[in-house]
Structure formats: C-alpha cells, structure tokens
Design a protein around this nucleic acid. Structure first.
Lengths: 102, 102
DNA sequence: TAATATGGTAAGTTTGCACTTACGGTAAGT
DNA sequence: ACTTACCGTAAGTGCAAACTTACCATATTA
C-alpha cells in the first residue's frame, strides 16, 4: 500500500482533517487536540495512530504529554500523486477539445 | 463544505481511486471503467457522482456513452489545501528543534 | 508513597456507506 | 417499430469503521 493511499484514507475522515488542521500552526498535546472536537480522547488516540501511519504527523513525548505535529512526508506523497494527474489531465482535455472542433 | 473536503472524501475510497487512475491518461465510458473493477456498474455510477461533485472528473455525453475525464479543479483544490500545511509545518518543526537545543 | 494528569489499548456497539438487484429512460442500429 | 446497448436512480442489505466505556501504564507533583 502506497503512502499516498494511506494519506487519502486518513484525510478522508472529517474528524481526522479537523485534528490535522488543529496542529497546523504549532504542535499540540493529545488533551489539547481533544478539546472542542466533539469526540472522546480514546477516539482521538485512534485517529492519531492512523495519521501517524500515513506519515501525516509525528509524535514526540515530553513528560506525560505526547505532542503531535505535521509531518511533511505524507503531504509530499499526496502532492506527488496529484501532480501525476496534472499533465495527463491537461493533454487529455486538449485531445477532447480537438475532437470537438472537427 | 470546501471543494478540498469533498476531494479527500472522494479519494478516501480505494474503488474511487482506482476509477480516478483508470481515466488518468484518456477519457473512458462508464462501461469501460467498470471492466475489471470488481464492482457492478451501478456502483460505478454512484462513485462517479461523488467524484463529479468533488470536481475531480467531468462527464460529457456522446451518443449513449458518458465519457469521464479528469477535472483539474478538484485536484487544484486539494493541492492548495496541502500547500497550506507546507510552510507552517516547516516553521513548526524548526521551533521544536530550537526548543530541544536549549 | 500517594495522588493526579496524560494517554494508549481492548472490547463491544452503532451507524454510515459501499454494495447489490430491480427498474426506467434514452440513443443508436436493424 | 423493435431490439440492443448504455446508463442513472431507487430501495434494501451487509460490513467496515468510527465511536463508546472500561481498564491499565507511565510520568509528574505534593
């Protein structure tokens, strides 16, 4: 399974997107992430595991707190995946436009 | 709901990713897309609707066939979303590295 | 050492969603 | 006009996954 696949699967869930966006600016502990999310802390832990396996976040322990921050690896994998569709989509579009003219 | 949200939701499903990749190089009719996918044609139709609403594909009729091709709009929306995490993730990482030194 | 705070995991429940079959609708061919 | 091919939608089903509660482990503080 590709990293990008895990990435799209991870960000396919709205709660995980909310978590991802919450740690966008600065690393946050799990308790802080949970606040205002509307789900229990164990649920957050399970989501974090999926985000971690998709290389979208990294976790580093500091005392009893586990700080989560954005990981570039997963993001880059997803960007590369989307980039591969970029050129081909353009050429395909041009082909159709050509066809219509005739 | 943002276009990028719909995009991640759409590509979060493996069958929809398979469809998306199948029309990567050239537009395909629904029947052709269905071949070798392992799901029924109605299932494909339902997936196509979701991909269309996420601006990831466009559909144009030609006789009785409905040709599907990649749409740049949805892709661009997702790329923009990921780009917004790019810089901030870097600065956040630097902040943590600074903190560790002290 | 006792108490508190943080958080991961196990087990069970529920709900959303990906799938199916059945049907109708349109366009092209004979 | 009849048949065939292509396709979307409606309705119902089954399962994966997102949630819950309960429990345990670890690290800090008093």
């Amino acid at each position: 399974m590709r990293t990008s696949d895990k990435g799209f699967n991870a960000l396919g869930d709205p709660t995980r997107r909310a978590i991802f966006e919450k740690i966008r600016n600065r690393p946050l502990a799990v308790v802080e992430i949970t606040k205002g999310l509307g789900v229990s802390r164990p649920a957050v832990s399970q989501h974090l595991k999926i985000l971690r396996e998709a290389r979208l976040i990294t976790v580093h322990q500091q005392g009893t707190k586990n700080f989560c921050q954005v990981d570039q690896q997963g993001i880059q994998a997803m960007k590369n995946y989307l980039d591969n569709f970029w050129d081909t989509a353009l050429t395909a579009y041009k082909l159709v436009a050509e066809k219509k003219k005739r």
